[in-house]
């Protein structure tokens, strides 16, 4: 009997016994996998975070909150948090501001809206590794596009070059983050803008409001729930950034792009401090959770006020 046939007979038998067994059969695969690959790892990670373990030796040593205390005192972790905060704030603010601008322009009744949307959305579907490799070469010292462009304009590129320059490396990573995210924000904004009744704008125009006034007094407040949604999503994603940094800078120069995700990866898979890395995971979780909670409160209040 094939697996599908077996499932089918089992299922119809279950149906006679009632809803519970039908539900159990439909849910069983998802629930089992969820328990094995979500719940179990979660509990295990909590356990590891109070242990000292290199991943190989049979013995783990109980250290209580030692791993957390070490993190609290670690300058490296503090640096990683600062870098991650800077990246998150930069990507979120620029990404949201630019995408609102583009979405409003796209929504102003121009032709070719679809083509523009297609182009702006392209980076969203591109593989991160490919994108990061391309950007690395664009920023290559000497032969990279950024240098060529600046030289053509008669300007001097910074020295040391972009990704090797402690002042510039993080800015470039933020730029790539914005580039990769912009199209997604635009699409969501466009969906929201199309829901604002045209009558509002018409009435405002009759009352003599200019385009800037209409934008400030109608668009911005009415689109606020979507802005907050995009900000929350962007913060969560940016805080957990790993892949772009891993490919583009690997945390350098001198730790100026070392985000917490990268530090955690390094602690776990290069230095094999599994306890420290697990504790780090929980601290990151706590921070993201707190930010989300505060924003949902704010979000809820805002929505009720509208």
């Amino acid at each position: 009997m094939t697996a599908i046939a077996r499932m089918r007979t089992g299922w119809s038998r279950a149906n006679r016994r009632g809803d519970l067994s039908a539900a159990a059969l439909a849910l069983a695969p998802a629930i089992v996998l969820f328990a094995l690959f979500n719940i179990y790892p979660l509990l295990y990670s909590g356990y590891l975070s109070v242990m000292e373990w290199d991943g190989f030796s049979p013995d783990k040593e109980y250290v209580g909150l030692g791993n957390y205390k070490a993190l609290y005192e670690s300058a490296m972790f503090r640096n990683a948090l600062t870098v991650t905060f800077t990246y998150t704030v930069g990507t979120t603010l620029l990404g949201v501001a630019f995408s609102l601008l583009v979405a409003v322009l796209l929504n102003s009744g121009i032709r070719g809206q679809n083509i523009y949307r297609l182009v702006y959305f392209l980076p969203v579907v591109t593989s991160t590794v490919a994108a990061a490799v391309v950007w690395r070469y664009l920023m290559n010292p000497g032969s990279g596009y950024a240098d060529v462009l600046l030289r053509d304009l008669g300007l001097t590129p910074p020295s040391p070059s972009w990704l090797r320059n402690p002042d510039w490396a993080l800015r470039i990573v933020i730029l790539v983050g914005v580039w990769k995210r912009l199209g997604f924000n635009i699409v969501i904004y466009l969906a929201g803008l199309q829901n604002i009744p045209k009558e509002y704008y018409e009435a405002a125009t009759v009352d003599g409001a200019g385009s800037w006034d209409r934008f400030r007094r109608i668009t911005v407040p009415l689109i606020a729930p979507i802005t907050l949604l995009l900000v929350i999503m962007s913060i969560i994603d940016s805080f957990l950034i790993f892949d772009v940094v891993y490919v583009m800078t690997d945390g350098g120069p001198v730790g100026t792009t070392e985000v917490v995700g990268l530090l955690l990866y390094r602690q776990a898979f290069r230095y094999f401090n599994l306890g420290t890395a697990s504790a780090m995971g929980w601290v990151i979780f706590a921070i993201v959770f707190a930010i989300t909670l505060i924003q949902w409160k704010f979000f809820g209040a805002r929505e009720a006020g509208l």
Partner: peptide, 9 residues
């Protein structure tokens, strides 16, 4: 819960 928490376990 962020994915990084699941990474090691």
């Amino acid at each position: 819960i962020p994915g990084v928490l699941f990474l090691i376990p």
